[in-house]
Amino acid sequence: MDITFIALAALTFTLAGFVKGVIGLGLPTVAMGLLGSAIPPAQAAALLLFPTIVTNIWQMASGPGLGAMVRRLWPMLLLAGTCTWLASGLLTNGNPRLALAGLGAALIANAAIGLRPRPFPRLPPQHEGWAGPLAGAATGVVTGATGVSVIPLAPYLGSLGLPRDQMVQALGLSFTVTMVGLASAFGQAGVYSDGLAWASALCLIPAMAGMALGNAARKRISPETFRRWFYFGLLALGAQLIARGFG
């Protein structure tokens, strides 16, 4: 890694951490979108694993009733982690251009969901038994193919009508499971080398610094305004990645 890429990685994770600090999400999405334009998506996903897992464990542990949340979501979590591991070959051994285009499509879908003017329809509790595992399996396939875990995980959790603190905790818990599955698969495939593991660990420093800046800025910036412009930026970035993938 030359000095130019080190500077790019530091700026990327500072920005990604800042976004997460202001609106509570977006670190892996921003990091994958920006790094995916500079290095192969599989390497970009490997680089963001450590900062993503650590920050999401923090987010998961800070919420109330973690045990009850695990008991409610475990079928979804099990399928999400397993299918991420099984589908990771799409990212590590597949066509890099298709992976880039898939990442762009995931970013656009994420932005479209974030810009949705109305809340998600409520899912009746009696349907969680089949909808949770289905959402988990689909999320695992998308994560294994693109390194981004938002689709369709976020819409499913949004449909449960969870209070804000529980929603944030559920997202942190779910993202932790998918990223651990991806890390396991990358280690087995030889993608997660010692050098890349150390680089990923070092990326936690700018990510945490960015989160601290974002937490401070939250008091001065309207989170809703920032969220809106963030998703508009994702739309543009996703379109650029799709163009590069098929160009």
Results as ranks from 00 to 15, higher is better:
residue 130 W to T: 00
residue 67 G to Y: 06
residue 97 R to K: 10
residue 32 M to Y: 02
residue 33 G to I: 12
residue 6 I to N: 04
residue 9 A to Q: 11
residue 231 Y to M: 09
residue 81 G to K: 04
residue 50 F to Q: 02
residue 185 A to S: 15
residue 93 N to Q: 10
residue 160 L to A: 06
residue 13 F to L: 10
residue 29 T to Q: 05
residue 173 L to V: 10
residue 163 P to H: 11
residue 213 L to G: 13
residue 126 Q to S: 13
residue 194 D to S: 12
residue 143 T to C: 05
residue 41 P to Q: 05
residue 225 T to F: 04
residue 212 A to C: 06
residue 231 Y to F: 15
residue 180 V to S: 13
residue 227 R to E: 15
residue 212 A to P: 00
residue 74 W to C: 03
residue 199 A to Y: 01
residue 222 S to K: 07
residue 75 P to I: 00
residue 148 V to E: 00
residue 35 L to R: 03
residue 210 G to Y: 08
residue 38 A to I: 01
residue 6 I to R: 01
residue 90 L to C: 11
residue 157 L to T: 00
residue 25 L to P: 08
residue 128 E to D: 14
residue 61 A to M: 15
residue 117 P to T: 01
residue 194 D to W: 06
residue 118 R to W: 15
residue 168 V to Y: 04
residue 103 L to C: 15
residue 18 F to H: 00
residue 212 A to S: 09
residue 153 L to H: 00
residue 45 A to H: 01
residue 204 L to H: 02
residue 170 A to D: 00
residue 75 P to G: 01
residue 35 L to M: 15
residue 155 P to Y: 04
residue 99 A to D: 13
residue 128 E to N: 07
residue 12 T to L: 12
residue 63 G to I: 04
residue 39 I to K: 09
residue 29 T to C: 11
residue 205 I to A: 15
residue 234 L to C: 08
residue 171 L to W: 00
residue 143 T to K: 03
residue 217 A to I: 05
residue 24 G to C: 03
residue 148 V to C: 04
residue 8 L to I: 13
residue 202 L to K: 11
residue 181 G to V: 09
residue 40 P to W: 05
residue 120 F to D: 14
residue 87 A to D: 10
residue 77 L to G: 07
residue 92 T to E: 06
residue 66 L to E: 11
residue 184 S to P: 02
residue 139 T to W: 01
residue 165 D to R: 10
residue 229 W to N: 07
residue 38 A to Y: 06
residue 234 L to E: 02
residue 169 Q to T: 13
residue 209 A to Y: 13
residue 137 A to M: 11
residue 239 A to P: 04
residue 244 R to M: 01
residue 80 A to G: 07
residue 242 I to Y: 05
residue 89 G to H: 09
residue 47 L to H: 00
residue 175 F to D: 12
residue 232 F to P: 06
residue 67 G to A: 14
residue 66 L to M: 14
residue 172 G to E: 02
residue 51 P to R: 09
